[in-house]
């Protein structure tokens, strides 16, 4: 890394990242996360690193920001092929998510556990790593309801 950044990743993956040809200087800057996640301080705010295991990798985490109330959901909620940044019609949007989730996140149990966990959070926005963003409680609740 060319900055003094600290990187966070699941402990599960630390031994694999060395296969990408990185050196000790890089490895020593990665903080390994236990399965239960962590609370980290960013500036004056506590950020919640919450488990998202099997969604879709076995050591996977999402980030909940309690100030903006955004849940960064990683690959969960991915959509491919749409031409907009924010979802406005949830029912029409499902077709852009369906293929990815059926192929990459096929575990109903993992999804139900995730839904149970995030229903305890006050979420205004779900922002996946790929595709369109779910903004507003109505969209958020529709997405959680779909996967539950």
């Amino acid at each position: 890394m060319t900055t003094k950044a600290t990187a966070l990743a699941s402990k599960l993956w630390l031994r694999f990242i060395q296969h990408f040809g990185v050196d000790r200087l890089f490895i020593n800057r990665i903080k390994g996360l236990d399965d239960e996640g962590a609370i980290i301080t960013l500036g004056n705010t506590d950020m919640y690193i919450i488990p998202g295991h099997w969604l879709h990798s076995p050591g996977n985490f999402q980030v909940y920001d309690p100030v903006s109330k955004i849940l960064y959901s990683g690959d969960l909620g991915t959509s491919l092929g749409q031409d907009y940044e924010f979802v406005s019609n949830f029912e029409e949007h499902i077709k852009y998510m369906e293929g990815f989730h059926r192929r990459y996140i096929p575990s109903g149990k993992a999804l139900r556990l995730w839904a149970k966990m995030v229903r305890q959070l006050d979420i205004e926005t779900i922002a996946p790593q790929h595709g369109a963003i779910f903004k507003g409680k109505e969209m958020v609740n529709k997405f959680i309801g779909l996967v539950a």
Partner: peptide
């Protein structure tokens, strides 16, 4: 990463930039 660093440098300044990265460690 090169493009990312450039944009972040404009946004918040690299001198004060003590960042954390959350890596999913997949090919993407």
């Amino acid at each position: 990463f090169k493009h990312l660093l450039q944009e972040i440098g404009v946004l918040i300044g690299l001198i004060i930039f003590k960042t954390r990265m959350l890596l999913q460690l997949q090919m993407d």
